[in-house]
Amino acid sequence: MAKLKKSPWLLHYDGSSCNGCDIEVLAALTPVYDAERFGVMNTGDPLQADIFLITGGINTQNKDVVKQLYDQMPRPKVVVAVGVCACTGGVFKDCYNILGGADSVIPVDIYVPGCAARPQAIIDGVVQAVELLEKRSEEHKAMKKNKKKGA
């Protein structure tokens, strides 16, 4: 991974997971695994977040919450689906209240498999998200520049 220009902030939301992936996300941020060494910081405020970590599938009640959190995040942004439930619905796919994975309501960029996803896998996903974010912010800047020229 090349040197980073910025420290991306991370927003975590528990869709309808069993809690396993959530505590692994937290474990990935605590000293033993320490995702913070990549400059990533956990925040509770969607307005300041760059990377959206979502665990668990989407159900009828939280789909609006997830959509709203995604919309509140400033561009550019990256979505990481952590755990098999967020990827596809997992073991709960056939439950009456599960609509599917996180990609049924918001665009997902990176899928982290596992039940529960291991901290190493989560860190790998976050690192990929950081790289993608760099790329997107370059594109975003270029787009803004072009707009200015055009105006």
Binding site: G57, F92, N97
Partner: peptide, 26 residues
């Protein structure tokens, strides 16, 4: 987070339900 996990009993047999029961909470 309501998934309707108890309703899965009609789709999975009693051995498979062990794994569903384990995922009530991580």
């Amino acid at each position: 987070i309501h998934r309707g996990l108890e309703g899965l009993a009609e789709k999975r047999d009693f051995n498979q339900m062990t794994y569903i029961a384990e995922r009530v909470c991580g």
